[in-house]
Computed example of a mutant assay.
Amino acid sequence: MEMGRVDAAETVATEDPWDASARGFYRRWWQAVPDRDELVEAVRTLGGTTQDVWVPHWRAVADRHEARAVQAEEEGDLALARVEFLATKTYLSIARFPDAITPEKGEVSRDCVRAYLRACAHLEPPLQVVEISYGEWTMTAHLRVPAAGTAVPAVLVMCGSDVFKEDRGWVQEQCVGRGLAALVMDAPGTGENPVPWSPDSVGAWEAAVDFLAGRPDVDANRIAAFGISRGGYSVMQLAGTAPEKLAAVVAVAGSPVGRLPEGEKLERHLATVNERSAWFFGAPGDGPFAEPLTLEELTARHSAWSLAELGLLDRITQPLLMINGSEDDHSPISNIYTVLEHGPLAGKEARIYAGAGHCAPEHAGEWIPQAFDWLATKLGADSRPGAGE
Rank of each mutant, 00 (worst) to 15 (best):
R82K: 08
G232C: 11
G343H: 10
G231K: 08
L266W: 02
S383T: 10
K245G: 01
V273A: 07
H302R: 10
W170K: 07
R315M: 08
S306W: 06
W29H: 00
W170F: 13
N324K: 07
V252S: 01
A308S: 14
K265A: 11
D7P: 06
T299L: 02
D186H: 01
I94C: 09
F164R: 14
L78P: 08
A147T: 14
A242F: 15
H342V: 06
E166D: 10
C175M: 13
L46E: 08
L92S: 02
P56V: 03
F280P: 08
K165S: 01
A283Y: 06
A304C: 11
R82I: 05
S201L: 12
W367K: 02
Y353M: 04
R168Q: 10
F85W: 15
V113G: 04
I94Q: 04
E309A: 06
A283V: 03
A182W: 01
Q31N: 07
S161R: 11
E366K: 01
A381M: 14
F289C: 01
T317L: 03
E2W: 09
W305N: 04
A32G: 05
E366C: 02
S255P: 10
L46Q: 03
G343N: 13
F372D: 00
R268W: 06
H65G: 02
R28C: 07
E366F: 04
D373G: 06
G343M: 05
V155P: 11
A154S: 09
A224Y: 15
R68P: 09
N324V: 07
G240D: 00
G135Y: 06
T45Y: 08
A381T: 13
L78A: 07
Y233F: 15
R268D: 03
P146W: 09
A121L: 05
A148L: 13
D314P: 04
L39T: 04
T14R: 12
G347P: 14
T272H: 14
A225F: 10
